[in-house]
Write a protein that binds this DNA or RNA. Sequence first.
DNA 1: GTTAGCAATCTAAGGTTGAGACTGCTAAAA
DNA 2: TTTTAGCAGTCTCAACCTTAGATTGCTAAC
Lengths: 345, 345
Amino acid sequence: MLQTRAETVLKSITRQYIALAVPVSSARVAQECDLVVSPATIRNDMMFLDNEGYIIRPHHSAGSIPSDKGYRHYVSTLENIGLPVTEKRMISHLFHQVEYDLERWLSLAVTLIAQQSHNVAVATKPKPPACQFKHLEIVSLHERLALAVLVLRGVRVRQKLVNLNQPISQAELTAAAGKLNEVYSGLSRFKIQDTDINLPDTETQITKDLLTMMQAEDEQAYEEPFLDGFHFLLNQPEFNTGHGISNLMGLVDQRKLVEVMLPAEPYSLEVQVSIGKENKAEAIQDYSVVVSHYGLPDEAIGTVGIVGPTRMNYARAISTIGYIAQIMDTLLAELYGIEAPDTWE
Amino acid sequence: MLQTRAETVLKSITRQYIALAVPVSSARVAQECDLVVSPATIRNDMMFLDNEGYIIRPHHSAGSIPSDKGYRHYVSTLENIGLPVTEKRMISHLFHQVEYDLERWLSLAVTLIAQQSHNVAVATKPKPPACQFKHLEIVSLHERLALAVLVLRGVRVRQKLVNLNQPISQAELTAAAGKLNEVYSGLSRFKIQDTDINLPDTETQITKDLLTMMQAEDEQAYEEPFLDGFHFLLNQPEFNTGHGISNLMGLVDQRKLVEVMLPAEPYSLEVQVSIGKENKAEAIQDYSVVVSHYGLPDEAIGTVGIVGPTRMNYARAISTIGYIAQIMDTLLAELYGIEAPDTWE
DNA sequence: GTTAGCAATCTAAGGTTGAGACTGCTAAAA
DNA sequence: TTTTAGCAGTCTCAACCTTAGATTGCTAAC
């Protein structure tokens, strides 16, 4: 464990390096924190921190910067994390001002996170473990072509063009849909597959399309995530060359960023932090990720997060993500709460 | 007008600068093109091109690079633009392999454009001038809450939660929807507003929500565009500093890129090129834009385009955008063609 | 355990130099 | 008149050097 003063020194170094992006000298530490010791004493502590791997020296006569381990310790001892009430109120206000619509919320979420943290913000739509049939509607387009509109649990809608083997009238289609609505209500696609009842030809045919749609919904691994804040990253001093950022952009272009930044723990609802080399994916080992799931564990889980340089303002990042996730929680609860299962008929 | 040899020289300079990103000297021009004259002669032509504003010299003893005017002339004299048949076949093949779904097509489109041109690719969904009512379905969620699913012309679906003034049963809702489907079929929201018939309370109430949904659809100025290829831009030598690119990233983050890159001419179906200062928006005056609308002018128009440094491979960019737009044309035609107006009942 | 003092070390910025790359001019050749 | 060779002049770029400034590590004293 760290001695108390060495710990103070480490915190001071981290704090200052986060703020200024410049290696921190012993003199600055002595000056910044209230320790009544001389820089020489600080230097002894720094030597210790260096040996233990908490800090790194870019070169012999430079100051210190925190290592991943140093940041980790800093993060693990952060206290009093939480946004000021005024900011909470402001954010909450903005969320209640926009239209009642999931996509708007997510778009607003990434905008706010990016602005607050000055880093890249990422958010994904919430996804339930397996989608559940809620309602089916079929609109005839042509004699042999129809549009199937499938409403899934959680106010999600999927549509598909259906080719019909033989001409079927709108009336017949409506009847078929009615039948299926009755039989499949509330079921997942696995349960639908297991349902062992005799259905007329038309219904069997449509069921196949139903299953395709539901499977597509389930398999759609990660939808296009919501992103914002890249211009902040480009203005960070560590990325002045533009090269350090190139692989990150590659990830974005390949739509792999979300998969890669997800932490090992699958469904924790706490804010999780991965620092530098702690990230599994090599491509982001120069970055830190602050991420939280949100939503209702049994209903649908989404992700909000920040990707930025390891030298990021963790306190602010964690508190922002925590609060936004909390807001998204309540919004989703509203969205799902009003929808008690099996009340429509 | 340019003399024939000066023109050859200009083309050679442009071609080489596009390929190598290095100012082109008179010797290189003499070597690269088949002119049987000495570098000194080329230099005379270069002096002329300089005076006329076709080329720029970074400094006294450097070679030449094309000005915006030079690029413009180069583009206007491009001939034989068109992708090789093998590439066309490859692209076409890929499009026919993916699911029959507009978003997949667009996602594939930007991926292909980015790969082909090594620049940023942009695409937007097609949007009709004003959306047209096609079919309405209402699903009761609670006594006083329902989900309205509105199918618009062009296989587009919108949904909205509707609060009901008094409790209404699913049967009543279905009846109301049926009534509205009868009355509003094929109409735009303006025509619906003008429709002067007496409707029961419930229907009138729902009509308000209908109009809100249709207006939202119409006003949704530009949806989140599909983007790809940023990592290519970061690797371009002219953006090594990362600063030149920062304002472009800002545009992306603000989702303004598409608005800004759209050319003056609103609905031309030809590939259009804006070079550097020709762009109206100041933020992209260091870039060139190659863009084309696609779709069916009376039905729905979308945009595909490339944003890159003025030093871009215009021949390739134009041919790629042209071909992709053409493919999107046919795909959209399929999507709309199968949907003759007023055939469903 | 802490401190002052100081030499050693390293960077970053500024200056200098020389090689290399082109041009522009001039005068001769075609 | 057009083209060419030759050459001086100009400019950049990379390499090298130098110096100022910052900071450490060590040592010996407190």
